[in-house]
């Protein structure tokens, strides 16, 4: 707060050219990032958009995308939250190594993720025989799509959740322990409510990444209508044969992703507000 106040106080004495730099910078950023999205909508009439939603290929892809991403997010949150809490609150030997490994999928190209998952979980992969004996089939199955999404999207959630847990004032958790709450109880009743806003932001990022996932899904899960063909794969499928319909389906995905981002913004905004008033 102090820095903002002092910045405002000295604002008049700042060189005007810096304000111009800031303005030009944001204008360039906006123009570049918005142009492709704008182009999708300029080239798609509302009629095409509605027509695209009427095709079974689109609706099945949309349904599959929502289904697989929601399952993936649930797995990520349930398994990942305690892990993020551990990484945020405990120091142990090899912690920075673990942090690097957890974040690795962030920097892996999707093609590498796809090849790696095939080499690990494919029929000829490291765990291929074990999976077959357990009658678990992932490649070319809907479950395989979920596996890919969990792999590529979980670092986005883990990072945010870890940061959120790190920024909790430790005295709250110490107080909870002093007052007789166990570690698990402190985690559930104190840490998670305090870290909620950051966790929601992590869910939004991970969900967005999962909705857009293309390359690794294609390599590991393939592309088949109703089973593994998510919206990005359906878009690519049409790209070769029917560009206008690929555009229309892209527009649908933009709307879904944007609404998701906005909804999370609003929820976490309301959360932050009610948190501040409490």
């Amino acid at each position: 707060m102090d820095t903002i106040v002092s910045y405002r106080a000295r604002r008049g004495s700042r060189a005007p050219w810096f304000a111009v730099v800031l303005g030009v910078s944001i204008a360039l950023v906006l123009a570049f990032l918005v142009l492709p999205v704008l182009a999708i909508f300029v080239n798609t009439s509302p009629a095409q958009l509605v027509a695209s939603l009427g095709e079974s290929e689109s609706t099945e892809a949309l349904k599959l995308s929502l289904e697989t991403t929601m399952i993936a997010i649930a797995i990520i949150v349930i398994v990942g939250t305690p892990a993020a809490f551990l990484l945020a609150t405990k120091s142990f030997p090899g912690r920075s190594m673990v942090l690097t490994l957890v974040e690795l999928p962030l920097v892996l190209p999707p093609a590498v993720a796809g090849i790696g998952l095939l080499a690990a979980l494919g029929p000829h992969g490291l765990l291929g025989i074990a999976l077959r004996d357990a009658h678990i089939q992932l490649v070319l199955q809907t479950a395989g799509v979920v596996v890919v999404l969990v792999f590529v999207a979980s670092p986005f959630y883990l990072r945010q959740a870890q940061t959120a847990f790190e920024s909790i004032d430790r005295s709250y958790m110490d107080a909870s322990r002093t007052l007789g709450a166990g570690q698990a109880q402190t985690f559930v009743r104190v840490a998670i409510p305090l870290a909620r806003t950051g966790m929601i932001a992590g869910v939004a990022l991970a969900w967005g990444r999962a909705l857009g996932e293309f390359g690794a899904t294609l390599m590991f899960a393939g592309s088949f209508q109703g089973i593994t063909q998510t919206v990005p794969l359906a878009i690519y499928d049409r790209f070769a044969t029917d560009f206008p319909s690929a555009l229309a389906l892209s527009a649908v995905l933009v709307i879904v992703s944007a609404s998701l981002l906005l909804a999370v913004r609003l929820i976490s905004g309301a959360e932050a507000l009610s948190g501040a008033m409490r």
Binding site: P123, H124, G125, M219, G222, S223, Q229
Partner: peptide, 21 residues
């Protein structure tokens, strides 16, 4: 029996050599 409709042939080669189909 069709399990996959790859957008290009490279994908079919990969799925075959990896034993997925």
């Amino acid at each position: 029996n069709v399990k996959d409709r790859e957008p290009d042939v490279t994908g079919i080669v990969g799925k075959l050599t990896e034993g997925a189909v």
